[in-house]
Amino acid sequence: MSKVYYNSFFAMGTRLNVVFPYTDEELCERLFNMIENEVHRVELKLSYFIPESFVSRINNEAFKSSVMVDLEMLEIIKLCLNYNRLTLGAFDITMRRLVDFFKQNPEATETDLTSCMQYIQLDDEEKSIRFTDEQTKIDLGGFGKGYALEKVQRLVNDSPIESAFISFGESSILAKGKHPSGKTWQVGLNDYINSGQSVYSFELENGSVSTSSNYFLDDSGQLQFKANVINPITRNINKEIETVSVQSKSPLEAEILSTAMLSLNDEKTAALKEKLNEVEIVKIRYNSGEASITKF
């Protein structure tokens, strides 16, 4: 019987679960502590909800005057701007006011509110950020978990532990090496109609799978649409029952793309896929009453 190290902690409104096929318990414990510290550091920096976070400070001050940022924050914002362009606007860190609008107006189906990406001004030399519109706020919700996992990936890769399976809220998976009894890790996509069954599985080795969906099942098993998944291009809530999973070497890329591709149709998704290396994309839709799988 093989031994397993398991531990978990809460961060970013969800739970990060760590599974290390057993090597050395002290080693596992030390790596787990490093992971926990790093994820909490990232959360404290990027959270929209923590008043003391760097993002909160930017949101509070960047319209009034330029806010000096460190190199890490500068690179993060640059990355977000780049992915916004790459995804034709589908990845958008300024959607918070639309999210708030739809939460406050649950009957609404569309809004005149627009993206605020154009109002973000980065000064590379000064290392500062400024908003040219008062309503602009950034929310790194579709970025933070992936970014944290990217940091975790470095810690895990630098450690002597040969194999690891890390689940962040069960929607973002990072794997190193392979399952002790297999050639890879097999990550299945849960079928919401037949819970516990996989509609598709990824063969994962030294990489990541991120899944985004615009729905969830509530406590009574009823399907609910998430109020925070707004299509930045059409500016409405996508009412197709849809899941997008992206496999990539980079957890951050997987996270960003799975978020963005919920807002892209198949044609645009296919076009975007052409620009990417070593990325597997799977969309699952349930509109016919059963799972329909489209692979890109």
Partner: peptide
């Protein structure tokens, strides 16, 4: 296979 991603994950 570990069925892990998807809508049975209930974020709230």
């Amino acid at each position: 296979v570990i069925p892990i991603g998807g809508a049975s994950w209930v974020p709230e």
